[in-house]
Amino acid sequence: MRYLSFDIEATGLGEKDYIIEFAMIPFDAKQRVLEEGLSKHFYIKCPSFDSMKKDLDPWVIEHNEELIKKAHKDGIEIERFKRELEIYVTNPTIKEYFQGQKITLFGKSMNAIDLPFMNRDLGWEFMRKHFNHRVHDLTSVTYSLIDLKCLPAKCESGSELMKHFNMGHVAHTALEDARNTALMYFKMLKQFSNKKS
């Protein structure tokens, strides 16, 4: 099947936090090919770091200060992002790649912030119009493989899963995370399709 691997970075996990970065890259699971030429990346405008700092999680302050400042300075407004995303998903090249079907989203731990934030900021109608109501989540696949004792329990952590597949550290940038999530899935497909029943 073909999927759109995507990732967002945000100012936190709370209801009132902001999307500050979004990236996506289509891939073909059967061929195990990432379509680098069809990848897309956005910074999305948010309030200034200083104005939000008192409400930010310590981890976000430590790791995402520069990203928040970049999004505040260079990001596009959320309504423009919505228009740009619609232009992307309705582009004839993308429609042909997905064979005229609604796009199936692929990501990691999407229920945490990705899907709730996208439903909130882009709207339920937008999401249902352009994306399949079914999604494919690498974390769910990982949990199944842990339950089957095909992966060690520590792999429920994204950083540990990256280490398990000798892929280094989680980048915490949207495009690299979208890319690496798909690449980890390729590695799972390769490893477990070779297992004898």
Rank of each mutant, 00 (worst) to 15 (best):
L4K: 02
G14E: 13
K16E: 13
Y18F: 14
F22M: 09
A23V: 13
K30V: 10
Q31R: 13
V33A: 05
V33N: 05
V33E: 14
E36Y: 13
G37Q: 11
K40W: 05
Y43L: 14
Y43C: 03
I44Q: 02
I44A: 06
F49V: 01
S51Q: 11
S51Y: 08
K54E: 13
K54F: 07
D55M: 09
V60H: 03
V60Y: 02
I61S: 02
E62S: 14
H63E: 09
E66Y: 11
I68E: 04
K70V: 05
K70T: 14
A71F: 06
K73R: 15
K73I: 09
E77F: 15
K82L: 10
R83S: 15
L85P: 13
P92I: 03
P92K: 09
K95L: 10
Y97L: 10
K108F: 09
A112I: 09
A112T: 11
D114L: 01
F117D: 07
G123D: 07
E125C: 07
K129P: 04
N132F: 06
L138S: 06
T139L: 14
S140P: 01
S140T: 12
T142P: 00
Y143E: 06
Y143P: 00
L145H: 03
L145V: 00
L148G: 04
L148A: 12
K149Y: 03
K149T: 00
C150M: 13
L151V: 02
L151S: 02
E160Y: 11
M162K: 14
M162R: 12
H164R: 04
H172N: 02
D177F: 04
A182T: 08
K187F: 01
L189W: 00
